[in-house]
């Protein structure tokens, strides 16, 4: 390498950046690009990937009622889990952001702890809670509220509860960060101008936390529609969402082309939403 080139690579940082960038190009972008042609190839049962070009996997995913139901279910789960996390998470985040308790760091750790705990373990906890002979059904029976156990596994309700639990910490941490950065003076100003707590909250605090609400919601939605472990374990092999469908196409049915097409549809939803929201955040940041 000539001295001039070395100097240039140092000044523009590409010398330092090339190992991490090379890693991403070879182990991230290349595999994704290599999967793109697969999604347009025909699938021959028993033999695997065939020759030729076809749009049938995309067409089927977007027209077939079986696929549409799974996509619809995935999106519905995403929306409802997001709303649940928002409604449960905002008050908790508000408390954690504003409390002057000296326990605050430890309360924050209680939020972070489930996040660090192995996802399979957390999901397993929900199996123990939601099973026919799990804690929830036993408690309800002991209280005399039900006679036969209610079905909480392998359906929408169970997934909703468990996924809300699993993604609640993400929402809370994003909101705590935003609420802590709200200027307290501005709320005090509203109060001196005659706003009671409700008016102060709905006219000042809540509108100013909108960027955090947006960021947290996008995050939770994308994580929910991408989730594999929890839907697989709580939904079983029959109650499917998009990611478990992709899992089955690749590992059970060996229908890679269909799985690849579904992967790109799921990616389009996740990445599309993220870029849409960062555009929105930029506009909100730029002001009225």
């Amino acid at each position: 390498m000539t001295a001039g080139l070395r100097k240039r690579l140092d000044r523009n940082g590409l010398g330092l950046l090339s190992p991490p960038l090379l890693l991403l190009l070879v182990i991230f972008l290349a595999p994704l690009l290599a999967m793109l042609p697969t999604s347009f190839q025909p699938y021959i049962p028993g033999k695997g990937i065939g020759e030729g070009f076809t749009l049938e996997h995309y067409a089927k995913a977007l027209t077939d009622s079986y696929y549409l139901e799974i996509i619809g279910r995935t999106l519905a789960l995403g929306v409802i889990v997001t709303l649940t996390c928002l409604v449960l998470g905002y008050p908790l985040a508000f408390f954690l952001a504003r409390t002057e308790s000296r326990w605050r760091p430890w309360l924050m750790l209680l939020v972070i702890f489930p996040l660090l705990l192995n996802l399979v373990v957390r999901t397993f906890g929900w199996i123990a809670l939601l099973a026919n002979r799990g804690l929830v059904n036993d408690t309800l029976k002991a209280l005399g509220l039900i006679e036969t156990p209610i079905k909480l596994l392998f359906n929408f309700g169970g997934l909703l509860i468990a996924l809300s639990h699993i993604f609640l910490p993400f929402m809370v941490l994003v909101l705590v960060g935003v609420i802590r950065n709200l200027p307290r003076d501005v709320e005090d100003a509203a109060r001196t101008l005659g706003a009671g707590w409700a008016a102060t909250f709905f006219r000042v605090t809540l509108p100013l936390s909108l960027p955090g609400i947006l960021a947290g919601s996008i995050l939770v939605f994308v994580l929910t529609v991408s989730a594999l472990v929890t839907p697989r374990l709580l939904g079983g092999p029959t109650y499917k969402v998009m990611s478990t469908l992709i899992y089955d196409q690749f590992l059970q049915l060996l229908n890679w082309p269909a799985g690849a097409a579904l992967s790109f549809i799921l990616t389009a939803i996740a990445v599309g939403l993220i870029s849409l929201s960062s555009g929105m955040a930029r506009r909100m940041g730029a002001g009225t």
Binding site: P183, D185, T192
Partner: peptide, 21 residues
């Protein structure tokens, strides 16, 4: 309570509502 005192306060930071004109 604050909101019933009818006082005018100008803050060091001005504390203008950033989301309003």
């Amino acid at each position: 309570p604050v909101h019933k005192r009818n006082l005018g306060l100008v803050f060091q930071s001005y504390a203008l509502f950033p989301h309003m004109t």
